[in-house]
Design a protein around this nucleic acid. Structure first.
Lengths: 138, 138
DNA sequence: TTTACAATTGAGAAAGTTTCTCAATTAGGG
DNA sequence: CCCTAATTGAGAAACTTTCTCAATTGTAAA
């Protein structure tokens, strides 16, 4: 399974470096949106000396490979999390910032209708749901 | 109608200053997402000398008053547009960046079901649709 | 209309985020 | 085990956003 991921890199002529591994591992170990700085801190625990620029570059690469997704939170800087399988949307807990679950996409059904109705050929969309998970409500 | 808006400010103990008027007018005159810098440029045409910090502060105020909405586009900096009436979501043209239309919210219907199913009490969501408008397709 | 005061502004400094540059290093195909 | 192109670290640079403070200005009340 790590081998599959390795191949995804190699097929694109990209190297599967320790730094990229570390960034990916951080995302895998935390099912939550993480800011660049938090990712950088955690990566340095696994691989001391890793530079911030490398974290930026690794995340960019992971998004290109569709292994991670970039999201926008209200608090300014961008955050990242593991890419879900298939077309789904994250439900994020506003307290602990974890991605509780990815839900089926309700937009695909209606986008064709909307295209007809509005004259806009709808191609993509961005959807995030926010709430409070069971743990955080107690 | 400008009087209504004036009252919205006054009810909150806020002043309806020329700078805030200018920012609002720029949003009204352009049915599109505008970056802070483009807003600043256009505001200075109406009111030379207006500072960038004031544009930031005015937009923050307009969002608080629900007269404008802040959105996140891929290209980094935040953008703003006029707030739609009621709970609706923007359909944005990826070519001309105009907000073509606001569509009915398809999430409200399903959020209760999702809350039950996932155990997360869903409170808010963020949805933007992207496509290519008729004009830009020709 | 005038006055008084709290809210707001402009300017620039400061803080924070992201990208760029380049010499040194390294992964991985051959 | 080499060779080479891809990648990295470090710091500079660019860019976005917030903060500070003295000066100004709306507006409620006189």
């Amino acid at each position: 399974m790590s081998k599959d991921i390795k191949n995804i890199f190699h097929k694109q002529g990209l190297k599967f470096t320790p730094q990229r591994r570390a960034v990916l591992k951080v995302l895998q170990d935390t099912q939550a949106y993480l800011s660049i700085n938090r990712i950088h801190t955690k990566v340095k625990e696994l691989l001391p000396g890793t530079g911030l620029a490398t974290v930026y570059r690794s995340l960019e690469t992971l998004v290109e490979l569709e292994l991670a997704v970039k999201v926008h939170l209200e608090d300014g800087c961008h955050s990242y999390t593991l890419a879900p399988e298939g077309h789904r949307h994250p439900i994020v807990c506003t307290d602990c910032s974890r991605v509780i679950e990815y839900t089926e996409c309700p937009i695909q059904d209606i986008s064709k209708k909307l295209s007809k109705k509005t004259g806009v050929l709808i191609k993509t969309h961005f959807l995030q749901l926010f709430g409070k998970c069971e743990e955080c409500r107690n």
